[in-house]
């Protein structure tokens, strides 16, 4: 997952279909899509309490903004933990 958000694939310019690179790009896209969808549904549960009106209230809007930021922070924190664990397992 090293190239996530980083745009790792940059070299090579042949016109041939490279299934491996294609799969990598699609896996990356699926990962981001999945993250986004989970974020939408999590922040919906956390921030939207009522459906009596169609517009987002001021409070809900602020909640959503913070929710997205925090979701990202948790994503990074969990990633960091998994990375450390992964490195520890490799050393054994």
């Amino acid at each position: 997952m090293a190239s996530l958000f980083g745009g790792g694939a940059s070299s090579s310019s042949s016109n041939a279909l490279n299934q491996e690179r294609l799969d990598m790009a699609l896996t990356e896209m699926d990962t981001v899509t999945d993250l986004f969808n989970r974020m939408v549904s999590s922040c919906q549960s956390k921030c939207i309490a009522r459906y009596a009106e169609a517009e987002l209230s001021k409070g809900e809007s602020v909640c959503i903004d913070r929710c997205v930021a925090k979701y990202h922070a948790v994503y990074a924190a969990v990633g960091e933990k998994l990375k450390i664990r992964g490195e520890g397992q490799q050393q054994r």
Partner: peptide, 20 residues
């Protein structure tokens, strides 16, 4: 309620998308 719910969800989704 259903109409509000759908409209609100779309507003919500757009906002998350922008922040994301």
């Amino acid at each position: 309620c259903v109409n509000n719910c759908a409209a609100k969800f779309m507003a919500h989704s757009e906002r998350v998308s922008a922040r994301f």
